[in-house]
Computed example of a mutant assay.
Amino acid sequence: MSPASAPDPASPIGNTAAIASGAALVRVEHLSKEFPAGSTGIIGGKKLSIKAVAGVNLEIAPGETIGLVGESGSGKSTLGRLILKLLEPTEGAVYFDGRDLSTLGRAELRALRRQMQLVFQDPYSSLNPRMRVRSIVGEGIEIHKLARGAEKERRIAELLAMVGMSADAMDRLPHEFSGGQRQRIGIARALAVNPRFLVLDEPVSALDVSIQAQIINLLQDLQEKLKLTYLFIAHDLRVVEHISNRVAIMYLGKLVEIASRDEIYLNPRHPYTRALLSAIPTIDTAHRPERIKLPGEMPSPMNPPAGCAFHPRCPYAKDVCSSVEPKLETGRGGHAVACHVFPAP
């Protein structure tokens, strides 16, 4: 992948100082989500549930990009949808610009949805194959009554130009475009209602490597131009390094480490973070880290282990790890870690 321009870690946009000042645009408190998964018996059996997200606390400052990383099944996409209130939490609360989303009425929430949008992972299934680009991008403009007639047409053409597409794309169907072009259309659709916050759910994972860099650069340019805030969900740490100000590591529904981009990549604390970083391919043989191979697979979210959820796979686990759940504690420079063996610095 070609390097995208990385954000300046010293920038006031989205750094830990902004969070400390209470300037969070998005705040998540003790957020949990369980999905019913049947029961152990036909009559009177124990009800089972999938613990997709468990007690997450997170803050995102205006203009910041937080990269949310973890294996498939760790709860990343569920957390993104909970923040957007596309799913109702089992416990906890989400605040957007200081407003508790659970207290908003239907009309208030609909108005607020303009400010929070989602870019999907799959550019093929996320676009209606029977709708032309004009309708796909203009749908949100119509729903929120932002423009009509010639003004709406002008706005659609402007949005397409903003994402690197020509106005003649308006009359074409999704199957006439490549994957990268489709994702640009998806981004234009998300921007149509002038949002402040985007959840980017693995927006480049389905694209070729050369196209990934183009989309990442586009997202960075749009963020600077439109003053956007991103939650960037991914499993590819190479991509996350290029776009993020801070990085949050998620394992089995819980955040196990949060720190600035440089801290995560230069001074990882949690053993899971270290294992993920060691798996990044590199051609630099002189500085190639030793690959940390984790035994087994991620435990089932229906029956998570006691204590630290990572302890059955952790090469450094101690007795306390199997019985006491570590808290996510914040150390120097806002570096937060949930680990008994390698606590926050």
Rank of each mutant, 00 (worst) to 15 (best):
H340A: 13
E176W: 11
N194W: 07
P345R: 06
E158Q: 12
A10Y: 07
A52L: 09
I292H: 09
D122I: 02
R155F: 09
L112A: 07
Y265Q: 07
R261T: 12
R189V: 00
L127N: 12
V324R: 12
L159N: 07
K145D: 15
N15K: 03
G138E: 00
L198K: 10
L328S: 05
H335A: 04
I258C: 09
G75R: 01
E59S: 09
D221I: 08
V193A: 06
V133R: 05
E202R: 08
L294M: 10
L228S: 04
R196H: 11
E91N: 15
L87E: 14
P281K: 01
I83E: 02
A10N: 13
P3K: 14
H311Q: 14
E290D: 14
L86C: 14
A336I: 01
I13Y: 14
D8G: 01
D262I: 03
E108Q: 15
R106H: 09
S21N: 11
I143D: 13
T229F: 04
I19F: 00
I292V: 09
R134M: 15
R155T: 09
S210K: 05
F232C: 03
G164R: 11
T330W: 10
A157Y: 14
P89N: 10
R189Q: 02
M302V: 07
G180F: 12
Q183T: 10
M298W: 01
A309P: 06
P271F: 06
G55D: 15
Y272H: 04
Q214K: 13
T40K: 03
E290Y: 13
I292L: 10
M165Y: 03
Y316W: 11
S77K: 04
A169T: 10
A344D: 03
L222P: 06
Q181V: 00
P315E: 00
V324F: 13
H144A: 06
L87C: 06
A169V: 02
Y95C: 05
G92S: 07
P36R: 10
I143G: 09
R274K: 13
E257G: 04
R155L: 11
P271H: 04
V133G: 05
S323I: 08
G331E: 10
P174L: 03
D221V: 13
A206E: 04
Q183L: 12
G45E: 10
L200S: 04
S260P: 01
L79V: 08
T103Q: 10
D319A: 15
G105M: 13
P129K: 01
M250L: 02
P271G: 02
A192S: 08
P271K: 05
R189S: 01
Q181K: 00
E241F: 12
A6W: 10
K152C: 05
R106L: 12
R81Y: 01
H30D: 13
T40D: 07
K225N: 11
N267I: 06
L104N: 08
P345M: 11
V239K: 09
P12W: 06
L68F: 13
R291P: 00
A190F: 03
A10H: 08
Y124V: 03
I283D: 09
T285G: 07
A309F: 11
I143N: 13
S2W: 14
V69W: 08
F120Q: 00
G38A: 09
N15A: 02
S205W: 06
L219A: 04
P281C: 07
Q212K: 12
A190V: 01
A275L: 00
A338C: 04
P203H: 05
G14W: 01
Q117A: 07
I141A: 05
K152F: 06
G41K: 08
L218W: 08
G334P: 00
